[in-house]
Amino acid sequence: MKRKQWIACLCILLCGGVLLWFAQLLLVPKYMSGNREGAMTAEYYGDGSTHDVLFLGDCEVYECYTPPTLWAEYGITSYIRGTPQQLVWHSYYLLEETLRYETPRAVVFNVYAMRYGEPQNEAYNRVLLDGMRFSDVKLRAVLASMTEEESLASYLFPLLRYHSRWSELEAADLQYLFHRDSVTHNGYLMQTAVVPKELDIEGEPLSDPTLPEICFAYLDRMRELCEEKGIQLILVKAPTNFWGYYWYDEWEEQMVSYAGEHGLPYYNFIPLADEIGLDWSTDTYDGGAHLNVSGAEKLTSYFGAILRETFGLEDHRADAELSALWQEKCNAYEAEKNGGTS
């Protein structure tokens, strides 16, 4: 082949590659309105600062703890790497990835996901894994998480998954082609609506109350990783106990036993709801399944005292640089709270 032909081939390949890259940018969901949860994983990389506390888990972390409150009341810096139905292996790989960027003093893991021994739905994988930066950790996370219908290739080249979105494209796909707005406050997804809890109903009967072995295996890995890095691992269960996301006594026994066996602190906030000051007629936005901002602030205030008094996390409010950074975050938080976005 002559030199000119080589160059022509190269140009065609390059143009094809650029077109495919552009098509991928255009077609992947932007998650800027509607299901904003899909934008949460990637948002972490833009934060830039380090944190005393890292929260990991499902909606029971990103709807229950507010980093701006933890800063305002205790001067503790924190980030929530939570996503909807985050499974234990998701949390493990997010922890492994986060530790490449920073080493927090404490990792707080919400135990509700211990109930799931298998991936449940592609949508939950997508909102977490698509947002992860490419790395060997992401590859391992994808391999551990895929449902039978999913393929590794579609995570490496999301265009394979989203090519059919061309007919659903809207203005936001162009607007957010190269950037995303922030949808959370250090991982906290604000909900300001109030829908009181009116019924106390138990969850549906369990076919087997034994928590899956694979969950304990990944929790072991999280524990070992934290030990290796000198990080305090703290287990928590959010105070919500709704029939659709029920926490059974049999599960509680297993978690208490695991925590005791490994010397881990474990706080189940369900029986502490009154002590925390939660009012189920005002502190939930969906009938008791999740806390709204008022409930989240109460829980954060309560938990902050534990972080300070039991785990000795220091107050950074005298640090001018951190104070300026967090003042901005607190201002944005208050603005959204007062604006009433839900």
Binding site: N35, R36, P84, L199
Partner: peptide, 17 residues
């Protein structure tokens, strides 16, 4: 009745008790 809200907005359908 009580409706189970999904953790992920946009998923179709809902469970009701």
């Amino acid at each position: 009745s009580s409706v189970k809200a999904s953790c992920l907005s946009g998923l179709s359908g809902e469970d009701v008790t």
